[in-house]
Amino acid sequence: MKKTCIYVLLFLLVLPFEGCYQTDDGSYVAPITIYEKINGSWSLDELTLVDEYAKSNAITPDNEVLTSFFNFQNFNIQFNVDASNQPTTFEVTGDVPALFLMSGYWSLSSSYPNTNLSAVRINLYADAAKTQIVDQLRLTSIPGAQDVMEIQLVRASSGTAFASYVFNLSPAN
């Protein structure tokens, strides 16, 4: 019993000195931005047209899958960034209906996910100076552990959404 007490005491004496070792924190690395996550070429898995008016009025059907219509299965969107991960140009290919601007310049409303959980906006511009937003997409699902992305094109009038197009995308091979 006496022996055990001595060992415990010794252990407790040594313990505080463990924290005295200096660890290497490495150099500063900027957090990963959304630009890095969505940069690249994305192809369509599914396109759904949601009738937001019907949905809010509990009328069915409130959505229709459009993937197999108008060549949408070939839909591809490419978001380009420069060497410092800043957005440059984007382009839609696949000979599909031009639901939004098919090519031009882009930027995000925030480089990081919004803390209030609202969707980050992808602003689309026709000019390199990015003076006037032509169309806007909502980034409703940011690629993370799952390498998939969901963007939503909302049709609104007088501030009320009446329809939206939901693009489910995965990296193009």
């Binding site: 047209l49 009738d51 108008f70 209906p97 639901l99 009038s157």
Partner: peptide, 9 residues
Amino acid sequence: PLKISQKDI
């Protein structure tokens, strides 16, 4: 959908 614009399907 029940409401459409000129830019819709």
